[in-house]
Nucleic acid binder design. Structure first.
Lengths: 160, 160
DNA sequence: GATTGATACTTGACACGTCAATCATAATCA
DNA sequence: TGATTATGATTGACGTGTCAAGTATCAATC
């Protein structure tokens, strides 16, 4: 039965199988997921023709951010919000394409440090403008206030 | 050029490699992608313990929506925004778990019609409350106006 | 009514995302 | 010091997203 929730009598609850939130909350959740899909697709459309995937691009961006310092595998994983196992294989592919280089740390031999290489930097430089344009177009119909509002609301959703 | 936006002369544009949008637009784009990740993770946390993945759940929801009418494969794919090849294998797994049944259409033998089965409906019923709760919690700190606003802004991003 | 072109789906190949298990190295502390 | 535990990374297995090819069926047309 599971009817404990549902304060007052609540027509809605009786009629619609006791699901008080079906409606705006679900609509917003679905909107977030679908919008992210659309955005991801657009960015992929810009990036993949250059021979790397969106995730590989994200890793290169992270490595460029720390360049010339290398980063250990787990550190990259944290910034990507992704689980570690994935990172290892992602780096395998980037290394085989010559965009990054890996080496064991001397101080702590458990660490594998990844550096971005010249071809990686060149590829990013080549993509910067198009990616910025895509970002701009994604929110192109929003004014500055709306963009700020969207960003703030999404942050609250993440922290919820 | 598309420089109409960008208020005053714009130092930013000159200095930072002529990338006027790096900043708020990129921040908003990243916010959308990261928020969707968080939301997806939360929903998965509710659904996967019951033995199906989030995508399988979405397919079952779609099939419940049309029940007792079955749906052809492509129709399901369109509602998921996913490419067809993925749907076929998704349905393979749902079928092997007994949640759906497939059959060739008699009128048009190219079509494969998928029906949701009793165990599928039961599983969904079992999940409805928890999923609704998760949706509600995701946007729990937003008031009704903010939820509507978020949904509307995201829709504009998708249409951009 | 046989050929041609579209449509609906399937299969193969590769890139992730994620969990569980494993291996090497460090750190701890008995 | 030697055993135990913690940490960092990798591997294996499975589900999914996506592209390119392939197969079966239908529709059109000659």
């Amino acid at each position: 039965m599971s009817t404990s929730r549902n304060p007052s009598g609540t027509l809605q609850a009786e009629i619609k199988q006791g699901r008080p939130f079906r409606g705006p909350a679900e609509e917003a959740t679905i909107a977030i997921l679908r919008t992210a899909d659309v955005v991801r697709r657009r960015l992929s459309g810009v990036i993949e023709p250059k021979g790397i995937t969106l995730q590989q691009y994200n890793v290169l961006r992270i490595l460029r951010g720390s360049h010339p310092e290398p980063l250990p595998t787990l550190e990259i994983g944290e910034r990507l919000i992704e689980q570690t196992p994935g990172i290892t294989r992602l780096l395998d592919r980037l290394e085989s394409k010559g965009f990054v280089r890996r080496e064991r740390s001397e101080e702590d031999r458990r660490l594998v440090l990844t550096h971005i290489e010249k071809p990686g930097l060149a590829l990013l430089a080549d993509l910067d403008e198009a990616v910025d344009r895509a970002d701009g177009e994604a929110v192109g119909t929003l004014d500055a206030h709306e963009i700020a509002q969207l960003t703030a609301i999404l942050e609250r959703v993440r922290r919820a």
